[in-house]
């Protein structure tokens, strides 16, 4: 038992240890200062931030709907939940292909956009954001939905009997109760968007400064300059660890069981 558990732990941890051990630490400053790396870093942060913002705008209402769907009949309730869950379990490449079929130049909607408005979606930074939203939205929705469900709706009624207006109820009761969930969801959403690869390279392509995000740059660098690839991978690892620490220290203790 314990031996297997140790083995499992090794499977999880050793690759990362190897990544850190094999990193070209001496050249790291030079590698990370490269134009191609900085470009990918900036693009990744800008697109992942935009995707997180979009996820918040779209995801909080969807989470509210999902939380309310608890009273719905079984079939529509399960369909709704499945629709939100699918991108979580789908290989991202499939998401990329699906987005292409919808928004590509010959896609269901993309062809209309192209013919009527002269707008093409693939190969733009916007396409990167869309791919990221597709894969990361469920993370936000489920985090917020969980917070909404665990929050007792009767507290809102209680606040109203104590003289709180609708806005005050939202501001002083609903928001503080779900805020930890929203924040945790946004952080998960951001880190998932930052790491997005498959849907992006399939749907958005790979052009430096426009669609070549950190993971794609890292993948490509592996073919020509492994040292740069390792440096990029380290950068992504560092961001992920930072996100994890931020989540644990700042938000998780605030959510009481």
């Amino acid at each position: 038992m314990t031996a297997v558990a140790v083995l499992a732990l090794a499977v999880l941890v050793l690759p990362l240890v190897a990544l850190v051990a094999r990193a070209p630490w001496a050249e790291l400053p030079e590698l990370l200062a490269r134009e191609s790396v900085l470009q990918a870093l900036v693009l990744s942060f800008v697109t992942a931030t935009a995707a997180t913002g979009l996820c918040l705008v779209l995801g909080v209402p969807l989470a509210t709907l999902l939380a309310r769907a608890a009273d719905w009949p079984t079939v529509p309730r399960r369909l709704l939940r499945a629709a939100v869950t699918v991108p979580l379990v789908l290989p991202p490449v499939v998401g990329g292909i699906a987005l292409l079929m919808l928004l590509g130049r010959r896609g269901l909607v993309g062809s209309v956009l192209e013919d009527w408005f002269g707008v093409t979606v693939p190969f733009t930074s916007g396409a990167v954001v869309l791919a990221q939203v597709f894969v990361s939205l469920p993370f936000l929705v489920f985090a917020v939905e969980g917070a909404l469900r665990s929050a007792d709706r009767r507290t809102e009624g209680a606040a109203a009997t104590l003289g709180a207006s609708r806005w005050q109820v939202f501001r002083h009761v609903t928001l503080p109760l779900v805020a930890p969930g929203v924040a945790a969801g946004a952080v998960l959403c951001f880190s998932r968007a930052l790491g997005e690869f498959g849907a992006t390279i399939t749907f958005a392509g790979s052009l430096p400064g426009v669609t070549r995000t950190l993971p794609i740059a890292s993948y490509l660098a592996m073919q020509s300059d492994p040292d740069e690839a390792v440096a990029l991978a380290l950068l992504l690892l560092a961001v992920s660890v930072a996100v994890l620490l931020g989540l644990r220290d700042r938000w998780l203790p605030g959510v009481r069981g």
Binding site: G104, G205, S206, L207, T211, R212
Partner: peptide, 17 residues
């Protein structure tokens, strides 16, 4: 877009993207 292999480029052409 600058693809990582020629078949990925070809796919983009055959899809009309």
């Amino acid at each position: 877009t600058l693809e990582s292999d020629v078949r990925a480029v070809l796919t983009k052409v055959s899809l009309g993207e």
